[in-house]
Write a protein that binds this DNA or RNA. Sequence first.
DNA 1: AAGAATAGCAACCGCACAAGC
DNA 2: CGCTTGTGCGGTTGCTATTCT
Length: 383
Amino acid sequence: MVGKSPNDEESSSASGLKKGPWTPEEDQKLVHYIQRYGHESWRALPKLAGLNRCGKSCRLRWTNYLRPDIKRGKFSQEEEQIIISHHSLLGNKWSAIATHLPGRTDNEIKNFWNTHLKKKLLQMGIDPVTHRPRTDFNYLLNFPQQLLAAAVNFSCNPMNPWDINDFRLGSDATQEAKIQLLHNILLQVLNTPPPPPTMEALNLLGSVPVLVDHDHQQQLYEYLRLNYNQFEEGLIGSSPIGYPNPSTQIPSTFPNLQQVNDHHQPANSNYQPRASSKDYNRLFNAIPTANSIPALVSDCSTVNEMESKVSPNEISNPSSTSTSFEAWRELMVMDDEAGDSYWRDLIDQTTSGTMANLAVESAFSTLNSFVKKVILHLGVGFV
DNA sequence: AAGAATAGCAACCGCACAAGC
DNA sequence: CGCTTGTGCGGTTGCTATTCT
């Protein structure tokens, strides 16, 4: 290789030169010297300026901190946009990006990217390396509002899910989106051969009546009933081998199946109890009548609030250790305004809408796959 | 209130390359 | 042509302030 040896004087830690944070006195010496004599030779500068530092350290201190045209303080929205858009074109070429941001150094931009922008993009479901929608879906379990927003968009305009105008929606559309999403998931559950859902899954379904209106609820249970009858009649799939028969373990009280069943689980942590026809019957019997349906969840802002409004007999109690189910429930009960304002803020923050479009594309493109993942979490085999 | 964990940031490290001698 | 020097660059480290438990 042509160039500087890695063991040069500047990099050597055994040179006796000072390292670490600069003192105000050192800063003053450096600034004073450069203002007076310039910096023709960084190597010679420290000695001439009376500094016990290497030339490289002096150069970095000057270019990244002491230069008079350095702009300090928070990055503006406009600067954020410039960084993101140029990063998508240039990658980690921080100095090239810095040329578009007068007064900002490559180091400052790099730090800002690593500590703020990268996280921001990840939370929006955008891969910060490729600037494309993320292809792993675990994050959606942690950010249900993105998924809900995607579902809102889809339910409002399924033919053109990319239309940005659809994001200014009211709570009716949001509620509709919840139903739409639930339908998608249940349709896939019901089109999936056995093994039947786990008890956890059944518990989730047990909570459906408090989440959607009565018509949709009846429709969903009809799907479920039909599907299970077909399974019983051998029309779809075959009875799974090797699953314990949960009907012998489950007490008669529905819907707290998982909670009670937990006490009977074998030591094997991979064990997932499966639902039996008896469990389905308990579920069907638990469907509330139209006049007993509690208020729609969009009236409640938190899970706790919801549960306090709903009788314990009308909602199941998913395992407290099931994070995916907690995320799911958060999705279903999330305050509509919170979700809407999340996207409104996002859109308002952007000048061209590019970021928002990326986020929309990202959230929507992962929706279908997320549904599959939910199904897997539910413990149902997926084709 | 105190210790632990985390976030933010300045600075350093080591490699690479271009230009000049 | 080969060496030296200056500079660019990206990754990493370590200190400090803040937040969490």
